[in-house]
Nucleic acid binder design. Structure first.
Lengths: 143, 143
DNA sequence: AACGATATCGATAATTTTTATCATTAACTC
DNA sequence: GAGTTAATGATAAAAATTATCGATATCGTT
């Protein structure tokens, strides 16, 4: 799985004529070792713990490459933080977000996807991606 | 319609013990006169054109009140701009966004809403709001 | 393996967006 | 109308992201 993603990035880099650098390798390693939905700052701290010399501009730059390569996706929550989540080509999930404790539950629903395709087709659109976020209160925060 | 929204805000202000100020009246007027999806900066410029003396902090503060009052909703597009759209209580729409020309088409789909409620219920969530954005290419940008 | 062209890096300045501060002004209560 | 205090505007500050640029490391070519 991790090996697969590294291969994807490597192929992407080749295709774009990008160089393989220690920094990119490390940032990818650390990113792949994290849980879902990490912010740039969080990732930067983890990367810096592994190699003090890495600047945060590089982390910003590299995350954008991951998005381009299809390995990650930006998600913007209502708290103004931009986060990145892991993504495997062709697979994705939507989010159920608790506004009380900010916890995130992921789900997939093929019926919704199908309806989305119908709607898009009705407007002549070709869908590339989508984002569905449901905001509410989880069982623990309802009280 | 506009009158109705003004009444909603007025009721909200009463309920929260907020004062009715010239600035809030003006900002609401201007906001209601705009098209969908306006950014804070854009609204600030329009408001300033009508009354030079208004500061942009006030526009930021007032827009947050509109959200609280249920008159507006924040939407964050992938271009990093936070925008506000009009919203009537109980009514809302989702977005079909062209990544080529950034045009936005709105739609509603009760079947999707129903599926969302099912998913939420399955996780014990109480849904407060949701956001659904489909990204793709519109007919003109497909070529 | 060394060379040379240049992509990439790290540090930091600069931007951009949003929020906090605070003295002044203006709503509302009595 | 006077007093209380929420709200404002100007500006500083904070936070997030991007641009700049000299130094460095990568990689194809020798």
């Amino acid at each position: 799985m991790i090996r697969e993603k590294k291969r994807i990035f490597s192929a992407f880099a080749d295709m774009k004529g990008l160089r393989a650098t220690r920094q990119r390798d490390l940032i990818l390693d650390v990113f792949l070792s994290t849980h879902q939905h990490i912010s740039v700052e969080e990732l930067y701290l983890k990367v810096k713990a592994a190699n003090r010399g890495i600047g945060q501009a590089t982390v910003y730059r590299t995350l954008k490459l991951f998005v381009e390569a299809g390995l990650a996706r930006e998600i913007v929550l209502h708290d103004g933080q931009t986060r990145y989540e892991h993504l495997v080509a062709g697979e994705h999930h939507d989010h159920l977000i608790c506004t009380g404790c900010n916890s995130i539950i992921e789900f997939e629903n093929e019926a919704i996807e199908e309806l989305q395709r119908e709607i898009a087709a009705r407007h002549g659109f070709v869908i590339k991606s989508h984002k569905l976020e449901l905001y509410g209160l989880c069982p623990s925060c309802r009280n």
